[in-house]
Design a protein around this nucleic acid. Structure first.
Length: 257
DNA sequence: ATGCCCGGAACGTCCGGA
């Protein structure tokens, strides 16, 4: 089963690019982030015609996540458990075949001196707690999405310039390791140790794409039973180079059924 | 050097993104 993740930066603005990529890459599951619309405004007809079932957890203007799958989507969980007061649509989880998948849009957290940063760290602790429960339940769990964390120096084009940023701050990286240390495998780095310039995001500003000033912030985290079945993982840079591109590009992994 | 770019909401210009 090919499972992909893509921060689409508005599903409506990106619909032609999305349909093109579904057609050429043909993932069995696509986890979307930043759909930036309410559920009622999701382009369900066009994506349904492309052969995908849909589960959404949207909100107006900001955030919003979705799961697309060729097979039925079952037992949908809307929102990350652990904070009833959290109104931001950043997490959706469901079962496709034997696999429990989640689409994650982890908070950015900038600026670090604002209340956005403690929100990010609290959200990561909440994610760690829920991710641990999935391991304890022996789920074949694949948690994919925009984690807004660069795990290591080689995941940043200019690590020295980014140490105080919420995406590469030591506390963000430590919180990411807390999740991994519960038994999760970060699929891309597991299969591509030491490979440089493997980014998933390039800012629209300053010619970042042309200069390859990128960040690796989109990840696929695999619970032990999913990691045992990992066959491949890669980043598809092509969509970032197209007209009206998202600032992120898709990452995918292949899990034995 | 948070401005450069982009989408959404709205219709002037700001918020949020990373």
């Amino acid at each position: 089963m090919k499972i992909a993740s893509w921060n689409i930066n508005s599903v409506r603005a990106r619909l032609p690019n999305l349909l093109d990529w579904l057609n050429e890459a043909s993932p069995d599951v696509l986890l979307l982030q930043e759909i930036k619309c309410q559920d009622k405004d999701f382009p369900a007809e066009e994506i349904g015609d492309a052969g995908y079932n849909i589960a959404t957890f949207g909100q107006k203007s900001y955030n919003g996540v979705a799961i697309l799958a060729k097979s039925p989507i079952e037992d949908v969980l809307h929102g990350l458990p652990g904070d009833e007061a959290d109104e931001q649509a950043r997490y959706i989880e469901a079962t496709v075949g034997r696999i429990r998948v989640a689409s994650i849009y982890l908070p950015n957290g900038n600026p670090v001196a604002s209340d956005k940063y403690p929100y990010k760290l609290a959200w990561m602790r909440r994610l760690a707690r829920h991710a641990r429960a999935l391991v304890m339940q022996d789920e074949i769990a694949v948690l994919g999405g925009d984690y807004n964390v660069c795990p290591e120096e080689i995941d940043v084009y200019d690590p020295k310039g980014w140490t105080e940023d919420a995406l590469f701050h030591p506390k963000s990286r430590a919180a990411f390791r807390v999740i991994l240390n519960q038994g999760y495998t970060e699929a891309f780095r597991a299969l591509h140790p030491g490979e440089r310039n493997c980014y998933t995001f390039w800012d629209y500003q300053g010619g970042a794409w042309q200069k390859d000033n990128g960040l690796r912030i989109d990840h696929m985290l695999l619970a032990p039973l999913a990691a045992d079945r990992l066959l491949g993982c890669d980043i598809d840079r092509k969509p970032r180079g197209r007209e009206k591109a998202s600032d992120h590009t898709p990452i995918w992994c292949e899990i034995a059924d």
